[in-house]
Amino acid sequence: MDGIIEKAISLRFEIAAVILFGIGFINLLLQSNLIKKIVAFNVMDSSVFLFLASQGYIEGRMAPIVTNGVTDAANYVNPIPAGLVLTGIVVSVSVSAFFLALVQRLYKHYHTVDFDEIMMLAKERVE
């Protein structure tokens, strides 16, 4: 039992990331407001970034910027997650912008951002 608690304390960032992912996922599924769905999607994105960043950290090492000409790998943290997170942030921004543009078009057409109401209106229009 003690071992598990110790491990949980050590892995706090990863666990926080998983919980954030869960919060984002359940809101993405259950919110009927499309804007809130997009916010939930962004929360999920951020949780993935937190997870990646926490995986790259190494205790007691410096940021991966060469200082004093030292290029020994034992001095710096892992630079790869930083690059991956950068890519992720850019993709997340692009996707959110695209979603928001779609929502704006939907709002102009149906005058609501509620997903259920849009579905009802769409069904009525088809009939």
Partner: peptide, 28 residues
């Protein structure tokens, strides 16, 4: 997550020879 190595562990398998190569040869 509970199967992962501890936070800040230098023996994390993510820190492999790719990272070493990037850090050691990157400047050069």
């Amino acid at each position: 997550v509970f199967q992962l190595p501890l936070f800040g562990d230098p023996n994390n398998p993510a820190v492999n020879d790719v990272v070493e190569r990037y850090v050691e040869k990157g400047l050069e």
